[in-house]
Design a protein around this nucleic acid. Structure first.
Lengths: 159, 159
DNA sequence: TATTGTTATACTCTATAACTATA
DNA sequence: TATAGTTATAGAGTATAACAATA
C-alpha cells in the first residue's frame, strides 16, 4: 500500500485518528501512574514536587541550589521553598559555599539518603504495568524511548 | 527460560529494572506531550482545565453542572469557576432547568462548538509522535490500551 | 555589572466547608 | 432532610519582579 508513491489522503486520515487515540490513551495511563506515585509519596510524607527535588539531588556530593533549579527545569525562587521543606524534614541541609559565598550548597543527610531511596522506588514501580509480559514491557520501553530520543526541554519558561 | 517453573530471582530483578526505566521514559514523554498541548490551548486563549471542561461538555445537548463535575472527576465547586470563565469567553451559557430549578443546564454556544473542535484537535495531535511509523503507532496504542483496560478511577477524592 | 539566593506577589488548579434555594 | 450550585478559604505548584550579598 502506497509503496512507491507518497501517502494518500486516506493514509493521512488513518494516521491522524490513530495518533489521536494513542495520545488519549497514553495520557490517561500516565495520569493513572502519577496518581499511584503520589499516593506512595504521600505515604512518605512528601508532596510530588518536594519528592522530585530530593530525587534530583546528588546524594553523594553537595550541589548549589542553582543546579537543582536547572535539573527541575524551574525557577530559582521555587527551589527556596522546596529546600525549606526538605530542610524542615531533616532530609537536606544548606551550607554557604566558602569559595563563592553567594552560593549555598545542598547536602543530603543520612536520613535524606534513606528517604531518597524510597522515593526512587516510588517513582519506578508501577502497579499498572504488572499486566504486561516482559516482552511487552520491553517493546513499550523501546517505543517510548524512540519518541523521547528526539530531545526537548522539560517544562519552564525558556531554557 | 523459566518455562515450567516460576520466575527466578534474576527474572524479578530484570522486570523491576525494566519497569522502572519504562515508567520514567513513559512519564517523560507524557510531560512533553502535555507541554505541547498546553501551548496549543494557550494559543486558543484557554488554560488546560478550562479547555478540558469545554471538551467534556456535550456540544449537542444541555447537561447539568453536576454531570460535568463527574466527567472531570472533580469537585462541584471547581465547575463553578471553570464555567464562569467559559461563559465570560462566550463559549457556554447557563440556564436554570425549568423542571428541577436547583439545576443549571450548560449549553455550548455556536462559538463554543467551533472552539471545542479546535480543542479536540489540540488534544489529539502530538508533534512528538511523528517519528513513529504507522505500525509502531499501532503497537503503542495496543500496549497502552492493554494497560488502561484494567479500569480505574481518574483523579478526585472518592467516587 | 552580573549572579545567587531570597522575598513578595500573583495565577492556576484543586479541595473542604458553609451557605442558598430548591426538592 | 437531601441535593445543586455557589462562595469563601486554603494549599500545592509555578512564575515574575525586586532585593541583598557577593563576585
Amino acid at each position: 500500500m502506497t509503496q512507491g508513491a507518497g501517502p494518500t489522503e486516506a493514509d493521512r486520515a488513518d494516521r491522524a485518528g490513530l495518533t489521536g487515540e494513542t495520545v488519549r490513551r497514553f495520557l490517561h495511563v500516565a495520569g493513572a501512574i502519577r496518581q499511584d506515585q503520589e499516593a506512595a509519596l504521600a505515604a512518605l510524607g512528601l508532596t510530588p514536587a518536594v519528592a522530585r527535588a530530593l530525587y534530583e539531588l546528588d546524594p553523594d556530593r553537595p550541589s548549589p541550589a542553582r543546579d537543582l533549579a536547572a535539573r527541575l527545569a524551574c525557577d530559582r525562587s521555587n527551589v527556596t521553598s522546596l529546600v525549606d521543606r526538605l530542610e524542615q524534614a531533616g532530609l537536606v541541609t544548606r551550607r554557604v559555599d566558602p569559595i563563592d559565598r553567594r552560593q549555598k550548597a545542598l547536602l543530603v543527610t543520612d536520613e535524606g539518603r534513606r528517604v531518597r531511596e524510597q522515593v526512587r522506588e516510588a517513582l519506578s514501580g508501577a502497579r499498572l504495568l504488572v499486566g504486561l509480559t516482559i516482552e511487552e514491557l520491553s517493546t513499550l520501553r523501546e517505543l517510548v524511548g524512540k519518541v523521547s530520543d528526539g530531545g526537548w526541554p522539560q517544562r519552564c519558561a525558556e531554557d
